[in-house]
Design a binder for these strands. Sequence first.
DNA 1: GTCTATATTTCGATAGAC
DNA 2: GTCTATCGAAATATAGAC
Lengths: 219, 219
Amino acid sequence: MPTHAVNKNGNSKSAVRRHNEEAILKAAESVFAESGFRGATTGQIAERAGIPKPNLHYYYPTKESLYRRVVENIFNVWLQAANSFDDCDDPEEALTRYISTKMDISRSHPNGSKVWANEILHGAPVIQDYLETTLRSWTDGRIAVIEKWIQQGRMRPVNPRYLLYMIWSCTQHYADFNHQIDTLNHSVPLSDEQFAEAKEQVVDIILNGVGVVRSKPAA
Amino acid sequence: MPTHAVNKNGNSKSAVRRHNEEAILKAAESVFAESGFRGATTGQIAERAGIPKPNLHYYYPTKESLYRRVVENIFNVWLQAANSFDDCDDPEEALTRYISTKMDISRSHPNGSKVWANEILHGAPVIQDYLETTLRSWTDGRIAVIEKWIQQGRMRPVNPRYLLYMIWSCTQHYADFNHQIDTLNHSVPLSDEQFAEAKEQVVDIILNGVGVVRSKPAA
DNA sequence: GTCTATATTTCGATAGAC
DNA sequence: GTCTATCGAAATATAGAC
């Protein structure tokens, strides 16, 4: 009788395996964020995960398979944030929640965002298929929602596609460029209060910019 | 009598040297943008520049010295764009010109912008000193200008620092993430017309967002 | 100034004992 | 499942002839 759990596929996954895989993923995310795919070494990742290097190759056969898992993780976090977009039909609430959630993710998952940025920067050699399938269809769906709001006269006529790019760039900037932001903040990370102000202002400028009147304007 | 020019430092710089240095810099910018610092190989750069690998080391002793030159180049391009900010005292014109110029640079120098993004993403290991000196003092100066406009009641009260971050992120996104943008555009680069529309919209949303009335609103 | 050949280092991946 | 020892590939940098 095995002491480990058996998953739905009939494969076994011991607690040790789960723990190690998790530690490796977390270490990989931070090392890939710091050094990029090629700059990261499996030795560094193993060291940060607290295991010998060969064990890393035991759990993830190649460096690329590990990298791909890290990229998929942040992408799925963002996809869930997109629910803010569908859960309600009011542009003010939907946009406010979506932008706020994306800012929160930049605060809580800066490393994942950096790995994604790095991947796109270099032409998406590993996750190009995601861009062409999942991201493309998600984007088209959200564009349709925004176009409906515009037709209803609930916001100014803007190109929804470029509005989405604006939201993505403004929010992810606080993760991807946080080193520059910290340096310009006397080399100290933004406090919770500063970050809250930045978040409020991003929401405020974009909503005002697209002509959505806010019921709870900035103080 | 030498056939080459003599520069102000008394050092000589032949036309051959100038030509090779220029070709290496351009090749390096594109290779570093594609692959990052560590991912780029001096062999690739030399090949793209059309010279043998050892010659590259003759002109630039180390890979890092070459990289630093590339990063300094894009930074100086952006600094010149900042003149748009000082040449006039009207917030509408100054912001419009600054944002437009930054968008144009994203269109004309996507590789330089990517190399910069990559450098910041990884914690600015090479140009940290630039962040702490030139960028910090430039930012403080521009913040003072924006604060003056706010005090004069010519725009809504926003935190100038986070407004600058917004402008930087929205504009540089069209360079750094152009692969993602192209993929979402049916895997075709934005046409001049599409890019012009994106540029107009970035200007429009930000100016409306900060309460600057535009004398030439979008069509 | 140029370029062939090579020294040196580093890292991804694996063999094989436990 | 774990880990020591090591192989083999690749890339930076240089030596030295021209």
